[in-house]
Structures are given as structure tokens and as C-alpha cells.
Amino acid sequence: MTFLFRTSFRKQGLLIPVLNAVRGMSTGSPTPPFTTLSISRPADTITHVEFCRPEKRNAMNKAFWSEMVDCFNQIAEDKECRVVVFSGAGKIFTAGIDLMDMAGDIMQPEGDDTARISWNLRQIIVKYQESFSVIEKCPKPVIVAIHGACIGGGVDLITASDIRLCTQDAWFQVKEVDIGLAADVGTLQRLPKVIGNRSLVNELALTARKMYADEAKSCGLVSRVFPDKETMMAGALEMAGEIASRSPVAVQGTKINLIFSRDHSVQESLNYMATWNMSMLQTHDLMKSAQAAMEKKSLKDIIFSKL
């Protein structure tokens, strides 16, 4: 797969300063064939996916849900990409679902009777769930960078990501009860496992109150808070570069096993890990990494084969 709008950039050697690379990450418009997403390459092994509907506060319309699946399925197969950074264009990360655009699917599903209407509505819900599950299924780590508001579906999206960063002005809201429904595309399933505090999750989901950056950091929803978006994007890019410099066998295996262990017992996860590494330990990357450590070389100087 070849994405458009690629730029080149070297970490630590810095042919182009990090901030200059950050300023070039936003194209200002979607990347064809997508209509809601802009795809760029701030570095050879890093893919930047930007939610690009700033004039609609990045509200999630019908096209967005299918384009997310197409985009991340392509990324999963892209041997060049080792890490993904996801962000939102414009003033906020996302206002959540685009109610005007989605009303037909949700309020008037097809069907002649209750059974058929319910069957079709279930298929729609499962389809929308996949739009964020595809982030979790993608073997490449996904760093999500949040600024301003992250409402409703935005919380579903970020809880499916691997690493969450935000700006000091960011705030989060599980908004669904305010519009008459229970969040149904991932928040109620993933948020309790992300922050590990059932009481807080229940409070957020049942009251739809806003959570601001400092509380998000203290409860574990995000791991870092930055003063502004530009600094955050630079931090996300630097972190992505650190991850991308490691063995892709090790990195992708780590993500897959972390997710497996979240949903299984310790013993089941240990068994899965043993089966995983009985083949993955035979990689040349292990010897290369060990040799670099013994010679006190940076992993950024080691060339790992594509995966």
C-alpha cells in the first residue's frame, strides 16, 4: 500500500527538526480516496492518521465509520508502517457522532416487523463497533493525541488505542445517556479496563459529566498531558520514533499479547505467550538487539527487516 503526502524525517539525526515535521503533518484536507481522514508519513516507519472534518468539529458521519475500517486494515498490511499516530484536525479532537447524518440509520432502520428491524439494527451496531475494534486488531501500536473536546464516540475511539496523550485543555465526556442511549461501540467495555475504577466509570457513563485533563491523567485514561497541541504532536512523534526503532517482531508481539492478557486469565495468557514466543524467539531481531546492547549502540542505528 502506498499512502500519499509522505514526507521524510530522521529521528535523533534530525535532518528536519521535530517541530517542523509536526507542522507538516496536517494536510488540511482528506487524502483520497478518504473523505474524512488525512493520511501522511512524517517518518518512513510512522503513519499519521488525522480525522479531518474540522468544519464539523470532526463529527463522525457515515463515511467516517467505513473509512476507519478501510484505513486501519490497510495499515495492518503495510510493511513500511511500524507505529500509528492518530489525531484530530481543527479546534477539537471530535464532537462525537454526527446525529444529523446518522439519524436515518439509527432512528429508521429497515424492516417489516420488530424482528427484522432489530436484526438490521444489530448489524448496523456491529458494523460501527468494528470501526474502533479495527484499531485494537491492528498489530501496529496506535498513539492517539487528543486536544480540546473528546465527546461520545471519541471516547470509544481512544479507549481502543494503545497510548493516549492529551493537551492541558482537553476534556472527555461519555455523552450517550444525554441523547437517550447506552454507549454501544466500546466505551462501556473498554473504559473500565483502561482506568480500573468501576465507580468512576459508572459515574462518568451515568452522569455524562466532563472529565478534564488533570483528572484523566490521575485516573490513567491518558499517560501524558502537554501544554498545547504542537508540543503534544511533537511528543507523540518522538514516542512513535522510539517505538519504531525497536524490532517490529517484538513490538507487534507485545501489543498482541497485552490485549490477549487483558481479556484472559494469567495462566491462559502465559500459555498463549509460550506458544507465541516458541516461534518468535527464533527471529534475527533478538540477536541484533542483544548485540546492540552489548556494544552499547542505540537501536536507532540497527536495521530491522520489515514485518
Rank of each mutant, 00 (worst) to 15 (best):
T2V: 06
T7V: 09
S8Q: 08
K11T: 13
L15P: 07
P17E: 15
V18S: 04
R23V: 15
G24M: 06
G24Y: 03
T27Q: 04
G28S: 05
G28T: 06
P32D: 02
L37P: 02
S38M: 11
P42V: 04
A43Q: 08
T45H: 02
T47M: 06
F51V: 01
R53I: 10
K56L: 09
N61H: 15
A63G: 08
A63E: 14
W65L: 07
E67P: 04
E67G: 05
D70S: 10
C71A: 08
C71R: 03
I75M: 06
A76S: 11
D78R: 10
V83T: 11
V84Y: 01
V85M: 02
F86N: 00
G88S: 07
F93C: 00
A95V: 07
G96P: 00
D98C: 08
D101E: 15
M102L: 10
G104H: 15
M107L: 15
P109W: 00
D112G: 09
D112R: 11
T114G: 07
S118D: 13
S118R: 13
L121Q: 06
R122W: 11
I125P: 02
Y128A: 06
S131T: 03
F132D: 01
V134C: 04
V134N: 04
C138I: 00
K140R: 13
K140S: 02
V144H: 01
I146M: 10
I151S: 03
G154F: 02
V155H: 00
D156C: 12
I158W: 06
I158C: 08
S161F: 05
R164V: 11
T167D: 09
Q173E: 14
V174P: 00
E176Y: 00
E176Q: 09
E176L: 09
D178L: 15
D178Q: 14
I179N: 10
I179M: 09
A182L: 14
D184I: 09
T187K: 00
L191G: 03
P192K: 03
K193I: 13
K193F: 13
I195L: 11
N197E: 04
R198I: 10
S199R: 02
N202Y: 10
L204M: 10
M211W: 03
Y212V: 12
D214L: 14
A216E: 01
K217E: 00
C219F: 03
G220A: 01
G220P: 05
F226W: 13
E230I: 01
T231V: 14
T231R: 05
M232L: 03
A236D: 02
M239D: 07
A240P: 02
G241Q: 01
S245Y: 10
R246N: 15
S247F: 04
S247D: 10
S247K: 11
V249N: 07
V249W: 07
V249A: 04
A250P: 06
V251F: 08
Q252F: 09
G253Q: 04
N257R: 15
L258N: 15
R262N: 13
H264M: 10
L270C: 07
N271Q: 11
Y272R: 13
Y272H: 08
A274C: 10
W276D: 12
Q282M: 12
T283N: 05
H284R: 12
L286C: 11
M294W: 12
K296P: 08
K300A: 11
I303Y: 06
